[in-house]
Design a protein around this nucleic acid. Structure first.
Lengths: 344, 344
DNA sequence: TTCTGTCATTGGAGCGTTCCAAGACATTAA
DNA sequence: TTAATGTCTTGGAACGCTCCAATGACAGAA
């Protein structure tokens, strides 16, 4: 920007508003305005102040801003204790786009460990009391998750990645349209000529799983294909999924849509035991496009969650809510993308 | 704690030191001391103040503390832009234990997006200028990574997950002892009776890869086993790894240690083409214990990085350094754990 | 020339905390 | 009784910022 001058040449010497003001020959407040309300300054003054800011490499002290404005410009994201269950493998990319979107708006994501006790609400309480976050992003929301209700009652801005499957639907959320994904998978398989398309799903009762099953069901119905006996269930474990997949195979299914890549592996194994291999004659489409999908032989077609977009939209909704707490609740459903590989 | 009284009964009414002081009938500073230097108070006063704190549910305002003490109690963790390569799949668990350890010490992890340009150093500069972090945790440090040197020059506390493979070794780091892992794998395979144990590695030149190769080499030598012609290379891609694995197979190898689970997949596929399957006659041990390992048929034995411990130790070293910037540099090597499954 | 209104700029005050130097009080020595 | 000593407690000041009300400059109208 200023090739002739090196901003922040010194070590970590703290530059303050006052120093910039002195350099530019203006008052303290004028510098503040140059940053926050530039339209208040005369163009000539603005230019002078901006140059001083650049030359000194000034950046507002976040704690001072936070203290005065009563806003930390920090977004809390609680990660559950590792002891309780497996960590979500998707977290990674989601966190990434989340914090990228936050950065663009001058916010940042702050992580905090959620204590297992008390449903972890005390961790949220604590961050709130400390004024350590202006809002929250939730993920992994289950049925009966108390967090939404709790935050809503207190008027705390938040956005959830994942629908509120249980009763009251308060608050903003962003989710992936699982039904749309499995529908698209069915249509793709039907387009390849398949008619006996099975569904390999999780046991009924989970919001996400039932949603994915519904998409298969609806698409089958629309295409006039029978669904009876074509839907089997298994926990998310390749061994047990193999048994379920064998039932589909015995029933004559030539293609399968699975609720997860792990379940899709059951189809792989069931075929292998029968001396066959996934492909045009025995297609399968998984869900989540996990890292294993491209590594399998043959590689697995799968429905990829648009995690980049989810993170971006989550942050967008949250920032909107921070700007206007009274605005109506918004829900956003994003479509997963069918990533085609050898298995279908 | 206080079953008879409900802390924070009200909504988000901000409780300050002054309010606690009034309630306890003491001066403002006394409450501050009760929290930061309890030994200064008379036990009786301390008790009274503590009760008031509990009753009001008081927590210090972090921004105010930060402003006064010139310490944000925030640890920066930069995530690289997604555009550059795949996100590291291990990040997840690492971040988890990192922020858990931070929480225990009253710190928190703040994420920031690292802009691709300028090697991302401007992102670190910015956070520093804003006083938005007291120190940093780095990961994914490559050869020639400028961050360590840059932070060191400025006297900024940091800890790297990953050795500084290149020249000057300034600053603390924690790493996983890849050589120890592959050595253990070799010894395990030798214990099973294998003599012709190959190594399926990455092309030479990467610090991590060469380290893992070295462990194999050394263990083979110690056991008096020949290594000539038993080491092949491939990029981290299952297709190409298959070709490399076939060379090992042609050379008569009965077991393989792979530098990654992805490479181990090459062995799976090479065997499959030969009508065989991994197991006692054709063992393989991967590295990283990625999510695919337990899902494969047969399941893959692998060396698991102790990411929980890595995160914990990283934070510990960083906190020590924050407490005493002059203390000598520390390096910690943690051993990976051999997770045995069907493939070995 | 004086007045009025508009616009650009300014210093005081305060956000909630901790540092510091000093105050209150009790205890013991002179 | 007074002074000296020590322990415990306290209010003023400051961290760096933004809000607010007020100031000064300056044009046009009276």
């Amino acid at each position: 920007m200023h090739p002739h001058t090196s901003p922040r040449s010194g070590t970590g010497a703290a530059v303050t508003l006052e120093m910039v003001a002195a350099r530019a020959g203006v008052g303290r407040q004028t510098v503040s305005n140059a940053i926050n309300s530039p339209e208040l300054l005369r163009p000539q003054t603005l230019e002078r102040v901006r140059r001083a800011i650049d030359e000194l490499g000034y950046r507002p002290h976040r704690a001072a801003q936070a203290l005065k404005t009563r806003a930390s410009r920090l977004i809390g994201y609680g990660i559950r204790s590792s002891s309780t269950g497996v960590p979500t493998p998707v977290l990674d990319q989601f966190l990434h786009s989340l914090s990228e979107a936050a950065d663009r708006a001058g916010y940042r994501v702050v992580l905090f460990a959620v204590a297992p006790g008390d449903d972890g609400l005390t961790s949220y309480q604590q961050l709130l009391d400390e004024h350590g976050a202006d809002g929250f992003v939730l993920s992994g929301t289950d049925r009966g998750d108390p967090r939404q209700g709790w935050l809503h009652e207190r008027g705390v801005p938040y956005v959830a990645f994942g629908r509120t499957w249980s009763g009251r639907d308060v608050g903003d959320w962003v989710d992936v349209d699982g039904a749309a994904g499995t529908s698209a998978a069915v249509r793709h398989l039907a387009g390849l000529g398949h008619r006996r398309i099975g569904f390999l799903g999780w046991p009924k009762g989970s919001g996400v799983g039932d949603d994915r099953a519904r998409g298969w069901q609806e698409a089958m119905r629309e295409l006039g294909l029978p669904t009876r006996g074509r839907r089997v269930e298994s926990p998310d474990d390749p061994e047990r999924a193999t048994g379920a997949a064998e039932k589909l195979l015995d029933g004559g299914a030539t293609a399968v849509v699975a609720a997860s890549d792990t379940l899709a592996l059951g189809w792989y194994q069931a075929l292998r035991r029968a001396g066959r291999t996934p492909g045009p004659e025995a297609a399968v489409i998984g869900f989540d496009d996990s890292p294993i999908a491209p590594l399998l032989f043959p590689s697995l077609s799968s429905l990829a969650q648009p995690l980049d977009a989810v993170g971006r939209v989550c942050m967008q909704l949250l920032l909107e809510r921070l700007g206007d707490r009274g605005r109506p609740v918004r829900h956003v459903l994003l479509e997963p993308e069918l990533v085609l590989r050898e298995s279908a």
